[in-house]
């Protein structure tokens, strides 16, 4: 992607782990970065338009919003396109990645409770004639997502 403007980069670096929880957060962020609130809002808009920022706001813990599990399918190469498209159609699927492995399709399944996941897994198995590998999270050792932006173009 094109170079980030200095303010845009500083905004992400400074606030990717947390933003101020006060009455006028954008003003507080602007003060922290030494710019006007308008410049801060312009920067947020620019970052969102360029898709460099997914969004700003609360990030909810998936496992607390009901049930979820990581699922893998070993799809024969000639069926991969078709099965992948079919899986992506499920509204309960919120990530779907092709990976280089015998288990070549990986996705996250979410639902209100575990019973709903069991029903979906059975439906997927019937639908695709493939046995899904069901790998629910048992423990999380890290839930942060933050990277250094050093050396970025």
């Amino acid at each position: 992607m094109d170079r980030l403007e200095p303010l845009d980069r500083r905004l992400i670096e400074r606030f990717q782990h947390g933003m101020p929880l006060c009455a006028e957060p954008y003003r507080a962020m602007a003060e922290a970065l030494g710019c006007s609130e308008q410049a801060l809002l312009d920067s947020l808009r620019r970052l969102q338009e360029r898709d460099a920022l997914s969004r700003i706001g609360p990030v909810f813990e998936h496992s607390r919003a009901g049930a979820s599990t990581l699922v893998a399918l070993a799809v024969p190469a000639e069926r991969l396109e078709q099965v992948a498209a079919r899986i992506s159609q499920y509204p309960e699927v919120n990530h779907n990645y092709r990976r280089e492995h015998a288990y070549n399709l990986w996705f996250v399944l979410t639902g209100p409770d575990r019973a709903s996941l069991d029903r979906l897994l059975a439906e997927i198995e019937t639908d695709t004639s493939l046995a899904p590998l069901d790998l629910p999270m048992e423990h999380s050792y890290r839930i942060d997502l933050g990277f250094s932006l050093e050396n970025l173009p």
Binding site: M1, H17, A52, P58, F60
Partner: peptide, 14 residues
């Protein structure tokens, strides 16, 4: 229940 309240970068785009 909330991991963080923050500016969430799109790492792929970055």
């Amino acid at each position: 229940a909330i991991r963080r309240i923050a500016a969430v970068p799109n790492h792929y785009r970055l």
